[in-house]
Amino acid sequence: MTTVPIDLADRFEIRPPFMFRWEHSQHAHVLLYPEGIVKLNKTGGDILNCCDGHTNVAEVLEQLGALYEVADANVIRNGVLRFLEVSRGKGWIRIKT
């Protein structure tokens, strides 16, 4: 699949019909969609939590960097961009227009 590379100015949002929220009984963020559920690990949940239609990718990187206190900015950057790409490929998120 060929996709346009992610731009730091892009603002992502959760794409309907997906519904993203914290699920207490699972102690995790989940993505609910027709007839299915995806349980996210801590980082995945934290990244999708920033896909609110307001925060741009540069700000997501900043917030995640602060949250995880990782010294090397490249580690966060690669991880987050890869996760956003995968999420977009799976149809979980889209660029807010």
Partner: peptide, 18 residues
């Protein structure tokens, strides 16, 4: 297409999910 590393199998941890 890349595979997501963050997708965990949801088994309900002994609870109903549906």
């Amino acid at each position: 297409m890349a595979k997501a590393g963050s997708e965990l199998r949801l088994d309900g941890n002994g609870n109903p999910v549906w």
